[in-house]
Computed example of a mutant assay.
Amino acid sequence: ALFPPAFTGGENKAVAATVDCNPRYVYLDPYEGAKAVVAEAARNLSCVGAEPLAVTDNLNFGSPEKPIGYWQLAEACRGLAEGCRELATPVTGGNVSLYNETLDSQGNPQPIYPTPVVGMVGLIPDLSKICGQAWQVAGDVIYLLGLSESKITLGASEYLASIHGIVAGKPPRVDFDWERRVQKVCREGIRQGWVRSAHDCAEGGLVIALAECCITGKRGADISLKLPLDDSQRLDEVLFGEGGGRILVAVAPEQQEIWESYLQENLGQNWQKLGKVGNSEIGLRVLSSDGQTLINARIEEMGDRYLKAIERRLAVYTNTQER
């Protein structure tokens, strides 16, 4: 969300706001999961060109009178505190909701996933220099900024939960030094006018982030992925693995040289040129470097699944209740 200049004294500044939490991460590792909440919130602000400023939190947990509930709450608070210190985003307020439980099929109380929601605000110095996640122009060059594949994991991922019905493993560990570097590069690219769209890789990994850019921009993308030459990494991990400090950006071809020079200076080798933005007809095409087709999805199909998911889920629930 963007708040216009009227909120900042009439200057050409604005405030951006985001709300984030991945309860599955926190359930599997409260400390690392809570740090990841703060990092993702800051990353989302950086993707529109905003400098993260401050945090409010909403801590939703089960009973602290139970050992696991107390441990989850304490560890999540420790993780939130560390994340906020690392990113210099003080907590200005918040609230706590405890004893959140429901009954399972046998009538036993079950706590909700620990859910420390973070609301973060950031400052946009110039409202004319912002961007969103949607692809803007066919032919723009797509880059992935961020950590190497060795930092990506399927543990605690959306892929495991949605495709395999498994909630297990450790969530990715947050590297705050790298988060600060990648986010700063993204913000500077936006402010210089090099970056025309930016979107972080979060739940679902790289392919889902690409799909979201295609859906919101109604433009396709031709992507070529450099896969490991050995068997050190699974293909589904490359496509759907999750890890912090990764941002997709699209840059105008005429800015490509200066942008790549800036990336080399600030990120070293930790970035990849993935492909180009296409038109609405081509959809999302992801190929391996040797030409193997990995993903081929039309924008209409992706948009249908993405935009009507809640409607379909509610329809299933309603039909079940009526029976």
Rank of each mutant, 00 (worst) to 15 (best):
G217I: 02
A211S: 07
V185H: 02
R196Y: 07
L229I: 08
L206H: 04
G220P: 03
Q233T: 12
G243V: 13
V185A: 04
D230F: 09
S224T: 15
C201M: 13
R196E: 10
R234K: 15
V238T: 12
A209I: 08
G220F: 02
I223G: 00
E242A: 10
L229G: 12
P228Q: 04
A198T: 06
R187S: 06
A209K: 02
V238I: 15
G204W: 00
I208F: 11
R196S: 13
G217H: 07
G243A: 11
G220V: 07
R187P: 07
D200M: 13
S232W: 14
C186K: 12
D231A: 14
C186V: 14
W194D: 08
R219L: 14
D231S: 14
C214A: 05
L239D: 02
S197N: 08
K218R: 12
D230T: 14
I190C: 10
R234G: 15
G205S: 02
W194I: 07
L227Y: 05
P228M: 11
L210F: 07
R219Q: 10
G205E: 00
L229F: 10
W194E: 08
L239E: 04
G204R: 04
D230H: 05
A198N: 02
I208T: 11
E203G: 08
A202S: 13
G217Y: 04
L206A: 01
V195W: 00
E242R: 09
I190W: 01
C201F: 01
I190A: 09
L206K: 08
C213Y: 01
F240Y: 14
V195T: 11
